[in-house]
Amino acid sequence: MSDPVGNWLDIGPTTQIEPGTARTLPVEGGDEIAVFHTMRGEFYALVNKCPHKQGPLSQGIIHGDSVSCPLHNWRISLRTGEALGDDKGCTPTIPVKVDAGRLFLLREAVIGPRAA
């Protein structure tokens, strides 16, 4: 695409999400997105649904680059969306970038169909 800015959806300043916490972004007609800020300072975005029983991952405890689902404690990789350990399943991820203190999500991944 010729306009790179248009490919990315500005969802506001990074300071809205404290390290070690996550916040949510409902999408009209689509799946709610959870945006994570790890203790180490990295940002990730996943569909806010555990592959197990659709628990809201945004409400889990974040440790390292994974989150433990609040419903049944499945551990999900924030990098890949894959369930870790013995559990099997994958949550779609949404590419995130940080630019000049603001968070951007890849627009097509937010509103379009997603590959798991």
Partner: peptide
Amino acid sequence: HLAEVRPLKLE
């Protein structure tokens, strides 16, 4: 929520 995304508006 951080914000809400309404795809039509976005487009």
